[in-house]
Amino acid sequence: MGEIVFQKPKSLCDVPLHYCPGCTHGIVHRLVAEAIDELGIEGQTIGVASVGCSVFTLLRA
């Protein structure tokens, strides 16, 4: 069996991504989640979503 070298960050919820194909907003979500994991602050973090597509983060979480 191979070694896992890359996986979804722990603080990124397992829900269908709602952005259109080609939109890079999902990558930003992942990078933010990676940073939260690295800093170990998931339990002390409050997410703020802007208006527009990213606000659907709230509805799907």
Binding site: G43, Q44, T45, I46, A61
Partner: peptide, 19 residues
């Protein structure tokens, strides 16, 4: 209230949007 979950409860959501 949004106070951080300490990973001990489900997160709260403050929101006024519903489609």
């Amino acid at each position: 209230a949004l106070t951080g979950t300490d990973c001990k409860r489900k997160h709260n959501i403050i929101n006024s949007l519903s489609l």
